[in-house]
Design a protein around this nucleic acid. Sequence first.
DNA 1: GGTTGGCACTCACCAGCGCAGAGTGCCAGG
DNA 2: CCTGGCACTCTGCGCTGGTGAGTGCCAACC
Lengths: 338, 338
Amino acid sequence: MLSERRLQVLRAIVQDYVGTEEPVGSKALTERHSLGVSPATVRNDMAALEDEGYIAQPHTSAGRIPTDKGYRLFVDKLAGVKPMTPPERRAIQNFLDGAVDLDDVVARTVRLLAQLTRQVAVVQYPSLTRSTVRHVELLSLAPARVMLVLITDTGRVEQRMVDCPAPFGEGSLADLRARLNSRVAGRRFSDVPTLVEDLPEAFDLEDRGTVSTVLSTLLETLVEENEERLMIGGTANLTRFGHDFPLTIRPVLEALEEQVVLLKLLGEAGDSGMTVRIGHENAYEGLNSTSVVSVGYGSGGEAVAKLGVVGPTRMDYPGTMGAVRAVARYVGQILAES
Amino acid sequence: MLSERRLQVLRAIVQDYVGTEEPVGSKALTERHSLGVSPATVRNDMAALEDEGYIAQPHTSAGRIPTDKGYRLFVDKLAGVKPMTPPERRAIQNFLDGAVDLDDVVARTVRLLAQLTRQVAVVQYPSLTRSTVRHVELLSLAPARVMLVLITDTGRVEQRMVDCPAPFGEGSLADLRARLNSRVAGRRFSDVPTLVEDLPEAFDLEDRGTVSTVLSTLLETLVEENEERLMIGGTANLTRFGHDFPLTIRPVLEALEEQVVLLKLLGEAGDSGMTVRIGHENAYEGLNSTSVVSVGYGSGGEAVAKLGVVGPTRMDYPGTMGAVRAVARYVGQILAES
DNA sequence: GGTTGGCACTCACCAGCGCAGAGTGCCAGG
DNA sequence: CCTGGCACTCTGCGCTGGTGAGTGCCAACC
C-alpha cells in the first residue's frame, strides 16, 4: 500500500505532465507543489512508484511520466470530476437549444464536445432498439413500392424502401398502417418483433405475402448492427497529440473511420456512469496510446446511446470527465423536450 | 511559348516528383526518361521553365519541383485522364450495388473514393433544390404537432418538426397533404415556392395560419444553406501527405470539419465537367497546399450534387481524375435506378 | 543556334565531438 | 525517516568537416 504522500507525488506528476507534456523531475516537482519535503525524498518516493509500475522514465536521467496504471490510479482515487462552471453550463445549453432536428442535435453535440475538451468527440445516435416508437408510416411511392418510415420518441427518423412482391390491395396499406401503429406506438422498439409476429394473419391471403415483406424489412432495420449510427468531430485536435504524433495519429484516424470499432468501443463501456479506458485498456490496438471517456445519455432515466471523447492518455481527466458528463446531461434534456 | 521538348521535360519532372516525393535533378531525369538529350541540355530547359515559373528549387543545388503553375499546365495540356481498368470498374459497381438507402450509397461512395485515390474523399448529398419531389408527407404526431417529410427522386429523405399555432381541423391535414402532393409531386424542388404560394387560400380561415406555418417550414428546409449535407472519409490518408505534414495537416483537418468551407469549395467548381483546383487556386487558405478534384454527379443528364477528393498538390492527377470520374458515373447510375 | 562535356561552386545532409544541464541513485549524517 | 551532497548518466545542442547531388556557366562542337 502506498503512503499518502506517495499518492500525492503521483498526483503531482500526473498534473505536471499533463500540463507540460514533458517528463517531470524531482526538483521541479518540489518547486511547483508544496509537498513539504525535499527533492531527495521525492526521489525515493518516485523510485517506489516506479517499482510498483505507476510511473516510468523514457530514458535514464530523464524525469518520470505516468504509466497507464498510474493514470488509472489517478482517475480512480486521486482526482474527482471537475464540474463545469455556471457560464460554461449556460453556454452548453444555449448552444444545444438552437437545434432544429436530431441530426442537428447530434452535430452540435459533437462540435461542442470537441471544443470543450479540445479532443476528438464521438456521439452515437439514440439507439433504435432502446427507444420507443412514436409512429410508423407507410408511403406508397409506386404500385409495388412502399417507403417505410420509423419515428422514435427521441426524434430519430429512419426510412427504408420496400419492394413488394405484389401491389397492395385497395385500402390494405392504410389498414396495415393503422394496425401496425395501434400495436407498436408508444412501445419499445425491442418489443416490436413479438408485437407484430401474428400481424399477417389479420390480412387476406392475397395481401399476406406483401405484409410479411414490409414487416421483415421493419425487423431488419432493428437489427443491432444496422441501426447504429454515429458522428465524430474535432479530428483537428489530433494534431495536439504530441511531438511523435505522426506515428500515433495514423492508427487513430483509421480507428475513427471504422464505425464498427468505435461502436464496439462505446458499447464496451458500462451502461451507467462514466467509463474511462486508458491506453492499453482499449481492446483496439490502434487506440493503445489514447484514452476514451464515455458515458450514456438518454431522455429519461435510461441511456439510449453513448457519447464520449478520444484523446491522448496524457489528458486532463477531471476536466474532460466534467465536460463529457455535462454535455451528456444537457443532450438528454434536449431530447426529452422534443 | 515553350518548345515541345521543354513540355516533355516538365511532364517528366511532374511524374518523377509525384512518384518519388523528392526534387528531381537533370541527371536523374535523363536516366529515367529517354529524352534523347544530355543532362546539360535539360539543365538549360529547366532554367527556362524556372524563369517561366513552372518549376522551382527548394534551395540552391537541389533538384526542381513543380509549382502550382507547373501542375496546372500539366493537368491542362500534358496529361489526360487515366481511365479505370475493367476489373476496377466492376469492383466499383459491385461495391455500390449493395447499398440499401441513400445514406448507405453516400457512405459507400466515400469509402470507395478514399480507397481508390488513397486520399480524402468528399461526397455531397444530392441537393434538394436540384432534385424533383417524389412525395411530401405530413404526419400528425400530436394535436398541434406535425412532422413534415420530404422525399426526393434520388432517395433523399428530409424531415422537420412543425409546431403549429393551433390543432389541425378534422381532415384538414389529409386535405393539405393531398393538395400539396398534387401540386408538387414530380416537380423540381426549386419550383416549390411558387407552386405553393397561393395554397393557404384554398383553406378555411381557421386553418389558414396552420397551413402557412407548415408551408413556411417546408420552404425553410429548401434554403440553400440548410439543405446541403456532405460526408467525408479517408482522413487517415492525410498521414501520407509528406515529411513536413504536421504543419500542413492541421489546417486541412480544420477545413474538413467546416462543412461550409467544403460546400463552398465544391460549389465553386464548374457545374459540368471535372474541376481541378491546384494549391493556391483554392480560395480557402488552409487548403493552399492541397489540390481538389471535383465533379458533379446526377441521376440524369443534370448534376444533382458534387463529389471529389482532397489531396496534396503532389498527387497523381490522371489517376485521381479517372477514379473521381468513374465513381461519379456509377453513383449517378445507382441513383437513377432507385 | 541549339547541344554537349567539363568544371567550379553551393548547399543540404550526416557523422563525430564536446559541452552543458537536468535528473538520477546512493550514501552518510541529522 | 528525511536530507544535503556527490558522482554518474544521458539527452540535446551547437560546432566542424567531409561528401555528394545538383546547379550555372563556358567553350567547343555539329
